[in-house]
Protein backbone atom coordinates (compact mmCIF):
# COMPACT_ATOMS: atom_id res chain seq x y z
CA UNK A 1 0.00 0.00 0.00
CA UNK A 2 1.35 3.37 -1.04
CA UNK A 3 0.27 6.94 -0.83
CA UNK A 4 -2.55 8.13 -3.04
CA UNK A 5 -1.08 8.68 -6.52
CA UNK A 6 -1.39 12.22 -7.81
CA UNK A 7 -3.37 11.08 -10.87
CA UNK A 8 -6.00 9.40 -8.69
CA UNK A 9 -6.68 12.64 -6.81
CA UNK A 10 -8.77 14.18 -9.56
CA UNK A 11 -11.25 11.28 -10.07
CA UNK A 12 -11.42 10.67 -6.33
CA UNK A 13 -12.09 14.34 -5.63
CA UNK A 14 -14.68 14.45 -8.41
CA UNK A 15 -16.50 11.39 -7.03
CA UNK A 16 -16.44 12.76 -3.48
CA UNK A 17 -17.86 16.09 -4.68
CA UNK A 18 -20.41 14.80 -7.21
CA UNK A 19 -21.39 11.39 -5.86
CA UNK A 20 -20.66 11.10 -2.13
CA UNK A 21 -21.65 14.66 -1.21
CA UNK A 22 -24.95 14.69 -3.17
CA UNK A 23 -25.95 11.32 -1.70
CA UNK A 24 -25.15 12.64 1.79
CA UNK A 25 -27.24 15.75 1.08
CA UNK A 26 -30.24 13.65 0.07
CA UNK A 27 -29.93 11.55 3.21
CA UNK A 28 -29.77 14.74 5.32
CA UNK A 29 -32.72 16.26 3.48
CA UNK A 30 -34.84 13.24 4.43
CA UNK A 31 -34.78 14.74 7.95
CA UNK A 32 -35.60 18.23 6.68
CA UNK A 33 -38.79 20.28 6.70
CA UNK A 34 -40.73 21.77 3.83
CA UNK A 35 -41.01 25.56 3.64
CA UNK A 36 -43.01 27.95 1.54
CA UNK A 37 -40.13 29.41 -0.42
CA UNK A 38 -37.68 28.69 -3.25
CA UNK A 39 -36.11 26.14 -2.85
CA UNK A 40 -39.06 24.67 -0.90
CA UNK A 41 -37.08 23.48 2.12
CA UNK A 42 -36.22 25.01 5.48
CA UNK A 43 -32.49 25.20 6.25
CA UNK A 44 -31.53 22.23 8.42
CA UNK A 45 -29.67 24.50 10.84
CA UNK A 46 -30.22 28.21 11.12
CA UNK A 47 -28.91 31.03 13.32
CA UNK A 48 -31.95 33.12 14.26
CA UNK A 49 -32.71 35.49 17.15
CA UNK A 50 -29.35 34.73 18.72
CA UNK A 51 -30.04 30.99 18.86
CA UNK A 52 -29.03 28.07 16.73
CA UNK A 53 -32.34 26.65 15.47
CA UNK A 54 -32.60 23.24 13.88
CA UNK A 55 -35.36 22.17 11.55
CA UNK A 56 -34.99 18.42 11.80
CA UNK A 57 -37.79 15.87 11.83
CA UNK A 58 -38.34 12.19 11.19
CA UNK A 59 -41.95 12.88 10.16
CA UNK A 60 -41.31 12.41 6.44
CA UNK A 61 -39.44 9.16 6.92
CA UNK A 62 -42.20 7.90 9.22
CA UNK A 63 -44.82 8.95 6.64
CA UNK A 64 -43.10 7.04 3.88
CA UNK A 65 -42.83 3.92 6.03
CA UNK A 66 -46.45 4.10 7.31
CA UNK A 67 -48.51 5.55 4.46
CA UNK A 68 -50.22 2.78 2.41
CA UNK A 69 -49.64 4.74 -0.81
CA UNK A 70 -45.85 4.63 -0.44
CA UNK A 71 -45.98 1.07 0.86
CA UNK A 72 -47.87 -0.08 -2.20
CA UNK A 73 -45.45 1.87 -4.43
CA UNK A 74 -42.52 0.00 -2.87
CA UNK A 75 -44.48 -3.27 -3.11
CA UNK A 76 -45.36 -2.71 -6.77
CA UNK A 77 -41.75 -1.85 -7.61
CA UNK A 78 -40.53 -4.95 -5.80
CA UNK A 79 -43.01 -7.28 -7.53
CA UNK A 80 -42.21 -5.69 -10.89
CA UNK A 81 -38.43 -5.96 -10.36
CA UNK A 82 -38.66 -9.58 -9.21
CA UNK A 83 -40.89 -10.49 -12.16
CA UNK A 84 -38.52 -8.73 -14.55
CA UNK A 85 -35.54 -10.58 -13.08
CA UNK A 86 -37.26 -13.97 -13.31
CA UNK A 87 -38.34 -13.44 -16.93
CA UNK A 88 -34.91 -12.06 -17.93
CA UNK A 89 -33.44 -15.25 -16.52
CA UNK A 90 -35.89 -17.46 -18.43
CA UNK A 91 -35.34 -15.63 -21.72
CA UNK A 92 -31.71 -14.60 -21.27
CA UNK A 93 -30.27 -17.93 -20.20
CA UNK A 94 -31.13 -19.88 -23.38
CA UNK A 95 -29.89 -16.99 -25.54
CA UNK A 96 -26.60 -16.71 -23.63
CA UNK A 97 -26.21 -20.48 -23.73
CA UNK A 98 -26.84 -20.61 -27.48
CA UNK A 99 -24.33 -17.80 -28.13
CA UNK A 100 -21.71 -19.47 -25.92
CA UNK A 101 -22.06 -22.79 -27.76
CA UNK A 102 -22.07 -21.25 -31.25
CA UNK A 103 -18.96 -21.67 -33.43
CA UNK A 104 -16.27 -19.15 -32.49
CA UNK A 105 -16.65 -16.84 -35.49
CA UNK A 106 -20.43 -16.55 -35.23
CA UNK A 107 -20.17 -15.99 -31.49
CA UNK A 108 -18.73 -12.48 -31.85
CA UNK A 109 -21.43 -11.47 -34.33
CA UNK A 110 -24.26 -12.81 -32.16
CA UNK A 111 -22.82 -11.12 -29.09
CA UNK A 112 -22.58 -7.80 -30.89
CA UNK A 113 -26.17 -8.20 -32.13
CA UNK A 114 -27.28 -8.79 -28.54
CA UNK A 115 -25.42 -5.73 -27.19
CA UNK A 116 -26.18 -3.25 -29.95
CA UNK A 117 -29.84 -2.53 -29.00
CA UNK A 118 -28.78 -1.96 -25.40
CA UNK A 119 -26.74 1.05 -26.43
CA UNK A 120 -29.25 2.26 -29.01
CA UNK A 121 -31.55 4.90 -27.53
CA UNK A 122 -33.44 3.34 -24.66
CA UNK A 123 -36.05 6.09 -24.91
CA UNK A 124 -36.82 5.43 -28.58
CA UNK A 125 -37.10 1.69 -28.02
CA UNK A 126 -39.56 2.21 -25.17
CA UNK A 127 -41.50 4.62 -27.37
CA UNK A 128 -41.73 1.96 -30.09
CA UNK A 129 -43.56 -0.37 -27.71
CA UNK A 130 -46.35 2.20 -27.31
CA UNK A 131 -46.99 1.87 -31.04
CA UNK A 132 -46.53 -1.91 -31.05
CA UNK A 133 -48.87 -2.61 -28.13
CA UNK A 134 -51.75 -0.26 -29.02
CA UNK A 135 -55.18 -1.81 -29.63
CA UNK A 136 -54.67 -1.23 -33.37
CA UNK A 137 -50.94 -2.02 -33.24
CA UNK A 138 -49.02 -4.89 -34.84
CA UNK A 139 -49.11 -7.14 -31.76
CA UNK A 140 -52.91 -7.08 -31.68
CA UNK A 141 -53.14 -7.46 -35.46
CA UNK A 142 -50.97 -10.58 -35.30
CA UNK A 143 -53.00 -12.02 -32.43
CA UNK A 144 -56.25 -11.33 -34.33
CA UNK A 145 -54.89 -12.82 -37.56
CA UNK A 146 -53.75 -15.97 -35.76
CA UNK A 147 -57.15 -16.28 -34.15
CA UNK A 148 -55.69 -16.22 -30.63
CA UNK A 149 -58.15 -13.47 -29.69
CA UNK A 150 -61.36 -12.33 -31.39
CA UNK A 151 -61.16 -8.70 -30.35
CA UNK A 152 -58.12 -6.52 -29.58
CA UNK A 153 -56.72 -6.97 -26.06
CA UNK A 154 -55.78 -3.89 -24.07
CA UNK A 155 -52.12 -4.56 -23.35
CA UNK A 156 -50.84 -1.01 -23.35
CA UNK A 157 -51.11 0.90 -20.05
CA UNK A 158 -51.25 -2.27 -17.96
CA UNK A 159 -48.79 -3.92 -15.53
CA UNK A 160 -48.24 -6.64 -18.15
CA UNK A 161 -47.02 -4.02 -20.65
CA UNK A 162 -44.62 -2.65 -18.03
CA UNK A 163 -43.27 -6.13 -17.38
CA UNK A 164 -42.85 -6.86 -21.10
CA UNK A 165 -40.97 -3.63 -21.84
CA UNK A 166 -38.89 -3.97 -18.67
CA UNK A 167 -37.80 -7.47 -19.70
CA UNK A 168 -37.10 -6.19 -23.19
CA UNK A 169 -34.89 -3.36 -21.91
CA UNK A 170 -33.07 -5.28 -19.18
CA UNK A 171 -32.44 -8.67 -20.78
CA UNK A 172 -29.02 -7.61 -22.21
CA UNK A 173 -27.90 -6.89 -18.61
CA UNK A 174 -28.52 -10.58 -17.95
CA UNK A 175 -27.24 -12.07 -21.20
CA UNK A 176 -23.76 -10.52 -20.92
CA UNK A 177 -22.54 -11.75 -17.53
CA UNK A 178 -24.29 -15.06 -18.17
CA UNK A 179 -22.48 -15.42 -21.49
CA UNK A 180 -19.13 -14.48 -19.90
CA UNK A 181 -19.46 -17.41 -17.50
CA UNK A 182 -20.96 -19.95 -19.94
CA UNK A 183 -18.27 -19.24 -22.51
CA UNK A 184 -15.59 -20.27 -20.00
CA UNK A 185 -17.23 -23.54 -18.99
CA UNK A 186 -14.71 -26.30 -19.56
CA UNK A 187 -16.00 -28.15 -22.62
CA UNK A 188 -14.09 -31.32 -21.82
CA UNK A 189 -15.94 -31.56 -18.52
CA UNK A 190 -19.29 -31.46 -20.34
CA UNK A 191 -18.05 -34.03 -22.84
CA UNK A 192 -16.71 -36.27 -20.07
CA UNK A 193 -20.08 -36.15 -18.36
CA UNK A 194 -21.93 -37.15 -21.50
CA UNK A 195 -19.30 -39.77 -22.49
CA UNK A 196 -19.83 -41.37 -19.11
CA UNK A 197 -23.47 -41.79 -20.06
CA UNK A 198 -25.09 -38.68 -18.57
CA UNK A 199 -28.23 -37.72 -20.47
CA UNK A 200 -28.29 -34.06 -21.65
CA UNK A 201 -30.80 -33.04 -18.96
CA UNK A 202 -28.75 -34.73 -16.26
CA UNK A 203 -25.46 -33.17 -17.43
CA UNK A 204 -27.15 -29.76 -17.54
CA UNK A 205 -28.50 -30.11 -14.00
CA UNK A 206 -25.39 -31.53 -12.37
CA UNK A 207 -22.55 -29.84 -14.30
CA UNK A 208 -23.63 -26.83 -16.37
CA UNK A 209 -26.03 -25.23 -13.90
CA UNK A 210 -23.84 -25.36 -10.75
CA UNK A 211 -20.85 -24.03 -12.69
CA UNK A 212 -22.86 -21.16 -14.17
CA UNK A 213 -24.36 -19.98 -10.88
CA UNK A 214 -21.94 -17.01 -10.47
CA UNK A 215 -23.01 -15.58 -13.83
CA UNK A 216 -26.64 -16.23 -12.99
CA UNK A 217 -26.34 -14.31 -9.73
CA UNK A 218 -24.45 -11.39 -11.30
CA UNK A 219 -26.97 -11.13 -14.12
CA UNK A 220 -29.95 -11.33 -11.78
CA UNK A 221 -28.57 -8.54 -9.58
CA UNK A 222 -27.63 -6.37 -12.58
CA UNK A 223 -31.28 -6.59 -13.65
CA UNK A 224 -32.91 -6.35 -10.23
CA UNK A 225 -31.09 -3.30 -8.83
CA UNK A 226 -31.79 -0.82 -11.66
CA UNK A 227 -35.25 -2.36 -12.27
CA UNK A 228 -36.34 -1.46 -8.75
CA UNK A 229 -35.94 2.26 -9.42
CA UNK A 230 -37.10 2.32 -13.04
CA UNK A 231 -39.24 5.34 -13.75
CA UNK A 232 -39.59 5.88 -17.49
CA UNK A 233 -41.06 2.51 -18.52
CA UNK A 234 -43.89 2.43 -15.94
CA UNK A 235 -44.62 6.06 -16.77
CA UNK A 236 -44.85 5.52 -20.52
CA UNK A 237 -46.55 2.11 -20.83
CA UNK A 238 -48.04 1.49 -17.37
CA UNK A 239 -51.26 2.75 -15.80
CA UNK A 240 -51.38 5.40 -13.12
CA UNK A 241 -53.02 3.00 -10.60
CA UNK A 242 -49.93 0.83 -10.25
CA UNK A 243 -47.55 3.62 -9.28
CA UNK A 244 -44.03 2.52 -8.43
CA UNK A 245 -41.04 3.72 -6.48
CA UNK A 246 -39.67 5.93 -9.26
CA UNK A 247 -43.14 7.33 -9.90
CA UNK A 248 -43.83 8.44 -6.32
CA UNK A 249 -40.38 10.01 -6.03
CA UNK A 250 -40.93 11.87 -9.31
CA UNK A 251 -44.38 13.15 -8.38
CA UNK A 252 -43.41 14.16 -4.82
CA UNK A 253 -40.54 16.14 -6.28
CA UNK A 254 -41.95 17.65 -9.48
CA UNK A 255 -45.68 17.84 -8.74
CA UNK A 256 -46.05 18.20 -4.95
CA UNK A 257 -42.71 19.97 -4.52
CA UNK A 258 -42.27 18.04 -1.29
CA UNK A 259 -38.52 17.58 -1.36
CA UNK A 260 -38.07 16.03 2.10
CA UNK A 261 -40.60 13.28 1.28
CA UNK A 262 -38.85 12.66 -2.05
CA UNK A 263 -35.55 12.46 -0.15
CA UNK A 264 -37.08 10.06 2.38
CA UNK A 265 -38.27 7.80 -0.46
CA UNK A 266 -34.79 7.97 -2.04
CA UNK A 267 -33.10 7.24 1.28
CA UNK A 268 -35.26 4.21 2.03
CA UNK A 269 -34.85 2.90 -1.52
CA UNK A 270 -31.07 3.29 -1.22
CA UNK A 271 -31.10 1.43 2.10
CA UNK A 272 -33.08 -1.42 0.49
CA UNK A 273 -30.55 -1.56 -2.34
CA UNK A 274 -27.47 -1.69 -0.12
CA UNK A 275 -27.64 -5.45 0.41
CA UNK A 276 -28.04 -6.51 -3.25
CA UNK A 277 -25.49 -3.90 -4.35
CA UNK A 278 -22.91 -5.14 -1.84
CA UNK A 279 -23.55 -8.73 -2.95
CA UNK A 280 -22.97 -7.71 -6.52
CA UNK A 281 -19.79 -5.82 -5.69
CA UNK A 282 -18.47 -8.73 -3.68
CA UNK A 283 -19.16 -11.02 -6.57
CA UNK A 284 -17.55 -8.74 -9.15
CA UNK A 285 -14.46 -8.22 -6.98
CA UNK A 286 -14.02 -11.99 -6.61
CA UNK A 287 -14.68 -12.78 -10.24
CA UNK A 288 -11.84 -11.52 -12.42
CA UNK A 289 -13.07 -12.95 -15.68
CA UNK A 290 -12.16 -10.12 -18.01
CA UNK A 291 -15.47 -8.87 -19.37
CA UNK A 292 -16.81 -8.27 -15.89
CA UNK A 293 -14.30 -6.09 -14.11
Amino acid sequence: MNRLPFAALLPLGWLLAFVALPVALVLALAFGETADRIPPIAPLLEFAHGHLVSHLTVAHLADVVRDPLYRSAFGNALVNALGTTALCLLIGFPVAYAIALAPERQRRVYLMLAILPFWTSFLMRTYAWIGLLRDSGPVNRVLLALGVVDHPVHILYSPAAVLLVMVYSYVPFFILPMYAVLEKLPRDLLEAASDLGGRPGYVFRTVTLPLSLPGLLAGALLVFVPALGEYIIPDLVGNSDTIMLGGVLWSEFFENRDWPTAAAIAGIAAALLVVPALLLRQHLARDRTGTVT
Partner: peptide, 9 residues
Protein backbone atom coordinates in the same frame (compact mmCIF):
# COMPACT_ATOMS: atom_id res chain seq x y z
CA UNK B 1 -25.67 0.31 -9.56
CA UNK B 2 -27.95 2.90 -7.99
CA UNK B 3 -31.13 3.70 -9.97
CA UNK B 4 -30.60 6.87 -11.95
CA UNK B 5 -33.63 8.60 -10.45
CA UNK B 6 -31.83 8.66 -7.07
CA UNK B 7 -28.62 9.99 -8.63
CA UNK B 8 -30.41 12.68 -10.64
CA UNK B 9 -32.25 13.87 -7.55
Amino acid sequence: FVPEILIGF
